[in-house]
């Protein structure tokens, strides 16, 4: 375990460092039910913009469920029901006037297992711009594809084989392709659901590096099982346990000076 995670700092919590950014996402009293089962209990969380927020906690604690609320992916699960208020830039995402298509174009998502479409690399990235009608010409589309691949740090590796199938890439490349695909519709928020859990350490390092660059322009929310990863990449951390948001705050503080016993137990590896 990382020395940074050692739990020996006593008493007085340090002054919370200001992030100097506005709040991008506001969640208030969010509850999620899967059929009879309640998966989230009154979660309220503010997420600052242009930073990386990590959601941590043991399996089944509701962190992925919360993540999926933010782009209303839970809508695709017939038995799921979400209550409470979630605002992005002050706008309620459950507002009937708001089209979920626009919401999801604005809130991109990267999944646990790389899931490139069974199409060419180019078509994978061009998929979003095409369905949203972002590009007017072939040249426009080429530009979007190239810049998205560049931002995802993949362009140099695949520039000579854009017509090859996206599923033929390595796991890490596939995941960066999925990030490029999400970036291509120019979202402001990118949700990442354990994006590195299926990758080897080298590919993981690349994705983490990428996240660090991307936070200049995007608000990133990442679910991770790896506490080292949360400590490395995030500025803000929220700890979930049994569907309850136990504690949230600047990453430094959560890891060095948690206020809740459960957080302390989790990050010292006593359970989870």
């Amino acid at each position: 375990m990382n020395t940074m995670l050692k739990m020996d700092s006593p008493a007085a919590p340090a002054e919370a460092p200001t992030l100097g950014n506005g709040i991008k996402v506001v969640a208030r009293d969010v509850n999620v039910y899967y059929g009879e089962k309640r998966a989230l209990f009154d979660v309220s969380l503010d997420i600052p913009e242009r930073s990386v927020t990590a959601l941590i906690g043991p399996s089944g604690c509701g962190k992925s469920t919360f993540l999926r609320c933010l782009n209303r992916m839970n809508d695709t699960i017939p038995i799921a029901r979400v209550t409470g208020r979630i605002e992005i830039d002050g706008r309620d995402i459950h507002d009937p006037d708001l089209d979920v298509v626009q919401l999801r174009a604005n809130v991109g998502m990267v999944f646990q297992k790389p899931n490139p479409f069974p199409k060419s690399i180019y078509e994978n990235v061009a998929y979003g711009p095409r369905i949203h009608g972002f590009a007017n010409s072939k040249a426009d589309l080429d530009g979007v594809v190239e810049s998205s691949l560049r931002r995802a740090g993949l362009f140099e590796e695949v520039k000579d084989r854009l017509a090859d199938s996206g599923t033929g890439l390595s796991g890490g490349q596939q995941q960066r392709l999925c990030i490029a695909r999400a970036i291509a519709v120019s979202p402001e928020i990118i949700l990442m659901d354990e994006p590195c859990s299926a990758l080897d350490p080298i590919a993981t390092a690349k994705i983490e590096e990428l996240m660090d660059e991307l936070r200049q322009n995007y608000t990133i929310i990442i679910v991770t099982h790896s506490m080292q990863q949360a400590a490395r990449v995030s500025q803000q951390t929220a700890f979930f346990h049994l569907g309850i948001l136990v504690e949230d705050g600047p990453t430094q503080e959560i890891f060095t000076n948690p206020t809740d016993k459960r957080t302390q137990d989790y990050i010292t590896g006593r359970f989870g």
């Binding site: 174009a105 999944f111 479409f117 998929y127 519709v185």
Partner: peptide, 15 residues
């Protein structure tokens, strides 16, 4: 067809 492909597409804002 894996559900992950559908999720990927929905996640892009596809209907």
């Amino acid at each position: 067809v894996p559900q992950s492909l559908r999720d990927g597409s929905y996640g892009m804002g596809a209907t």
